[in-house]
């Protein structure tokens, strides 16, 4: 019964702020945010990392793909309470020491056009190559199945990956 009352009192506050620590692109960050704020908004608004894009907000396009503890995830599906202590890598980390081979391949083979899906797509390719350095057909198609691109028809993207083999 005691608990119930506490809950009701707390519920008066509209937003529940929590402190989270996370490592983003190698930098430790401690921030106070709303518990249900989405990772994509934390990255774009609190940390000014706008390379991670917003498009469908339900995990059905891959534009916000980032790595969390070295695994590809949709930043729109993750909320602040889930990222405490996690290691996040965004597109911005990839070119910290010059262009990444994936980025060079995309440039040379037309792996993008409008570029809006590109950061997420590049992260998905990174996740693929981390797991399978020389991916076969099935692995490429599986790995990129969650990333939509409306411009290229995917052929330029596949050419880019094949070029890296």
């Amino acid at each position: 019964m005691m608990k119930k009352q506490t809950i009701q009192q707390e519920h008066v506050f509209e937003q529940q702020l929590i402190n989270i620590s996370l490592c983003v692109n190698g930098q430790e960050q401690t921030i106070e945010v709303e518990a249900t704020k989405r990772l994509v908004d934390i990255l774009r608004e609190d940390l000014q990392l706008t390379g991670t894009k917003i498009s469908c907000e339900i995990g059905r396009c891959g534009a916000c793909s980032v790595m969390m503890d070295k695994k590809l995830v949709n930043a729109c599906l993750i909320r602040a309470y889930q990222v405490n202590g996690k290691e996040i890598m965004t597109i911005e980390a990839l070119s910290q020491n010059g262009l990444h081979p994936i980025q060079n391949a995309f440039l040379e083979e037309g792996g993008f056009q409008c570029g809006y899906c590109t950061p997420g797509m590049v992260m998905a390719v990174k996740a693929l190559l981390d797991e399978h350095p020389a991916p076969d057909e099935e692995q490429i198609l599986q790995a990129l199945s969650g990333n939509l691109c409306r411009c290229t028809g995917y052929s330029g993207i596949i050419r880019s990956i094949l070029k890296m083999k």
Binding site: K3, E14, Q15, Q16, A35, D41
Partner: peptide, 27 residues
């Protein structure tokens, strides 16, 4: 959708999780 008003509870075991669920009035 961006909603920030929701209260987040973190349970350390299933019994606590159940207790929280039983104790909150709202959805």
């Amino acid at each position: 959708m961006r909603t920030l008003e929701t209260k987040v509870w973190s349970a350390k075991d299933i019994y606590e999780a159940w207790e929280i669920k039983a104790s909150v009035k709202d959805s």
